[in-house]
Design a binder for these strands. Structure first.
Lengths: 341, 341
DNA sequence: CTCAAAACTTTACGCGCGACAAATTATCAA
DNA sequence: TTGATAATTTGTCGCGCGTAAAGTTTTGAG
């Protein structure tokens, strides 16, 4: 079989005995051609292993099928998992997700936005860095590209999808108050609005329960939450500065660090007899089930958040009009009882 | 200021008073134009915020500046970290890394390769899934694109960069034998050659030390190593089937699961008095320092592996010729002593 | 000031494909 | 069989840019 090189759609059309425009139509929507034609094309496809040149395709299409996905920190399994779900969902819908990580750095986020823009994406799903974000740049981006924000509500994009921190934090505060000493609150660094909201939600929930809020304050902009939880935790334990024997951590990564600190300090964590400390988290991080002891926490509804984000984005993309009002969609968290609290 | 729309390079050239070919030259290499010209262009750039259309650029360039990066499982922080380092390195060198995750699935890896191919990348850095990989497809890909494989040595690509499992496993086996009961070996699922090599290395090291190898066998192709370590570990402990009081895990994620199993079974882990079990891992996973107790392990030289992979790829890209011999570059591991063993 | 080299401008072509209009052919119901 | 309709073919244009050739200007050394 003389396998001539089939590089262009022209070549392929010739080789398969179909005209180029029809082949083009097929690639845009396989169901738009007669089934007999489709079969002939697919037979040729199997033989020649041709793929349209994505650059040429996207240069000419009015709208590309690219969807940009930007997450603040890919080494955080929470975002890795979200990214995984989003990718799958987009691919299934016939789109091409392109993943960027800001790696916790302002400039990387800006770069990602610029690169993304030059790809003329049909839409974007963005979890902003938060305080480190350049909102100006992001707003300009969102003016041109349908954008859904998730996780961190920075008032950018045409919609936001995330968790209701006030509901979820209240849930676990109530649980902790009901089953033992009221919790103090181990903050995460104020990198994004979630940090602020969770703190406020904690205060609100404590006051409603008639308790005095106690907050372990944390500064900085670092995303190395585990290290922070460990170091700060060791110090607090050594200096006996923990206000109560129950600690609610602003997120699970902080809790993982604090669990390590407790272990290294010889404190037994849990809600049973002989335990000196209760530790709870927030997010239901993929590895919260493997900590020692397994972490009691509030789950974020990963799949619901992804599902609605993508759905909302597709709506925006197809409608074409910029809605004047920014929609905010919040999902409830769920109590995940394990043995750490 | 009448800000006319500057969309194309033509517009931009007109607006900045420079000819289009010169502008084009500037974007390809800012140093290739006279500095006075460069300043004029950059002044206009600040004013008009123009970016060349990536699709048009890449369609015409003989070689794009895209570099494909494929990892088997992005939710694994080891790969997340590797991806992060690779991305940074490529961007610094003026390339555009595009990240794909196979999510542990054969078909996703094939898709990634196909999508990547249609981006006509200048090169690719691939950590293959391993046994689940379609080697046929991968080899065909590597015929057309300069490819460096890392982490998992599947005999594809023009070079391989990774760790010397025989060196690293021997290191920790010797340490464990020297300081206590010789270790048994808790396998990872045989997803890739590393699994096989580490097992073989363990056997070799034990025999050289005059000890009898004891292997806890694991099957399947799952990438959920922690869950496997936890469940299998609980079973083994409950049924008292652990051959020795020292367990060397094939990687840190297995060890994290086993640590959780030990904790939940009430076994104290460590090398001190009153400890029932020693557990060691392999890789120096980003979170090995936060386990309870902190994990003794062998580190992989992340930065060296990344550095050499990227360097090797750039060599291949610039030389243009396919070297007839496949180079294999292995780095030594280093003993990381913490308190789990 | 002179002159060659370097940098620039002008002009033109082509990349691979989407999109469209007009002409042709295949399909299916009556 | 006929006609209407859907599907396909033919032909043609243009997307935004890289690239090359040929002509023009600028630069800097002597």
């Amino acid at each position: 079989m003389a396998e001539q090189k089939v590089q262009t759609m022209e070549d392929f059309a010739l080789a398969s005995g179909i005209s180029r425009p029809t082949v083009s139509k097929y690639f845009n929507d396989p169901d738009s051609v007669r089934s007999s034609t489709r079969q002939r094309i697919e037979a040729a496809l199997a033989k020649f292993n041709y793929t349209p040149n994505l650059f040429a395709v996207n240069q000419n299409r009015k709208q590309t099928r690219n969807i940009g996905v930007i997450v603040p920190y890919l080494a955080d399994p929470f975002f890795a998992e979200m990214a995984r779900l989003i990718e799958r969902r987009c691919i299934d819908a016939g789109y091409w997700p392109i993943l960027f990580s800001s790696h916790g750095q302002r400039q990387m986020e800006i770069n990602a936005l610029e690169t993304l823009r030059s790809l003329r994406p049909a839409g974007a799903l963005i979890a902003p860095l938060g305080r480190a974000s350049d909102l100006e740049v992001m707003r300009k981006f969102a003016e041109d590209v349908p954008t859904v924000a998730f996780d961190s509500n920075q008032d950018i994009g045409d919609a936001f999808v995330g968790s209701d921190n006030f509901q979820s934090i209240a849930l676990i505060v109530d649980y902790l108050c009901r089953t033992g000493e009221p919790p103090c609150f181990f903050e995460m660094p104020p990198v994004n609005p979630n940090a602020m909201k969770r703190r406020a939600a904690y205060i609100q929930a404590m006051e409603r329960a008639g308790q005095t809020p106690e907050i372990i304050r944390v500064g900085g902009q670092s995303w190395e939450f585990e290290a922070m939880g460990l170091e700060e935790g060791k110090r607090l334990i050594a200096e006996r500065k923990l206000p109560t024997n129950t600690v609610l951590c602003s997120n699970d990564r902080i809790a993982i660090g604090l669990l390590a600190a407790a272990y290294q300090s010889g404190l037994r964590v849990g809600r049973g007899e002989g335990c000196a400390l209760r530790i709870a988290g927030h997010d239901d991080h993929p590895w919260a089930q493997f900590t020692c002891p397994p972490l009691t926490t509030v789950s974020q509804n990963y799949s619901a958040i992804v599902e609605r984000s993508v759905e909302k984005l597709f709506d925006l993309m197809s409608s074409g009009v910029k809605s004047e009002s920014r929609e905010e969609i919040l999902f409830d968290g769920q109590l995940i009882l394990r043995s750490s609290a």
